[in-house]
Design a protein around this nucleic acid. Structure first.
Lengths: 180, 180
DNA sequence: GGCGCTATTGGACCAAAGGACAGTACTGGA
DNA sequence: TCCAGTACTGTCCTTTGGTCCAATAGCGCC
């Protein structure tokens, strides 16, 4: 397999993305791998980039987009989707400050020193806390006297910002932060 | 300034690189900024990327290289030098694995005082722990090589025994906290 | 053998959760 | 004044989660 060859890896949802990429890169270490994900996820993207992926993109992207990505990768670049970019940079920041925190004060690192809820708006923090207390959307709606729909909107925003897929994972993050 | 315009920012060694970029991006928020550094530095690069730079490269690179980078950026890509890439990914990795470790440990928290899981059968404890780790029914089914249906059966039994109404409250209990 | 507990699965059914796509309204800057 | 961010609401639709009823099978025990 010559260097410069571009390979497209369409992720199979049924097994570990990392394993799939690792396999492929084992077989063709020098290929430039573009990963197509059915359900793009920031964490997954990071993991895959660290395994040597050169691009990570929604499998349902337009042909034009795919061609563009291919061009970038062939030219030696790294493709990070527009939407991913912003958040990736944010998380890179926190990852860095965390890494630094670990190096500086390993004691604090054990408890997660920075507040993951900091990126959330006031309202988002409210719903996030309620979710973490085990409330249902309906209950939260009643609590805050807003529609269940609005609760979902806030929760959806929180999921994106904290990069979790459901309320349970959100609860784990929030309660891990404040073991009261 | 139209989106898609590429700007080359040759860093002045005498003032803060971040400030220089911030200025430029203020003036042209939508431009794609390629940063040229006389003395490339990974830390600096990260800072600049988080400020919205699209590429960071040695100012003394060959013309061919610069053209290549330009192509990548114009196509919407991100250019990250080889060494930086490696470094960036490593720190991301450690942060990730740490986050995962935190997310995966609530199980142990429950082991200190009396274990509410004691009333559960072995299998029920297994699914309860998986639930508390944020896994979906489908994932648990795969993990234990049983049907999703069976997972539901176990979970239902757990709900009754622990007197909770859903997986989130179960997770909170297993994590050693009380749902309010 | 019969009883109870555990583990497993099926089908049907309904509620909750969450995404996609849109839209209105207010506010604090540049 | 225009713009970005925040808060809020709507509809449609798909996926998950959870419950009910029902069944088969292994295991230890009296």
């Amino acid at each position: 397999m010559a260097a410069g060859t571009v390979l497209w890896l369409h992720l199979d949802d049924d097994s570990s993305a990392l394993a799939q990429l690792a396999n492929l890169r084992n077989a063709a270490p020098k290929a430039l791998v573009i990963v197509l994900a059915n359900k793009p996820d920031n964490e997954e993207a990071l993991t895959l980039f660290s395994e040597g992926a050169r691009a990570y993109i929604n499998a349902h992207a337009t042909v034009a987009n795919l061609r563009q990505v291919s061009n970038v990768v062939q030219a030696g670049g790294l493709w990070i989707g527009e939407s991913l970019m912003k958040r990736l940079l944010v998380s890179t920041q926190t990852a860095l400050s965390r890494a630094q925190a670990i190096a500086a004060t390993p004691k604090e690192a054990a408890r997660g020193s920075d507040d993951p809820l900091a990126v959330l708006t006031k309202r988002e923090q409210e719903v996030a806390c309620s979710v973490a207390n085990g409330s249902s959307n309906k209950e939260i709606a009643r609590q805050l006297t807003i529609t269940e729909r609005t609760v979902k909107a806030h929760i959806g925003a929180v999921f994106q910002k904290l990069n979790v897929r459901d309320r349970l994972q959100l609860a784990l993050i929030v309660s891990g932060r404040r073991p009261s």
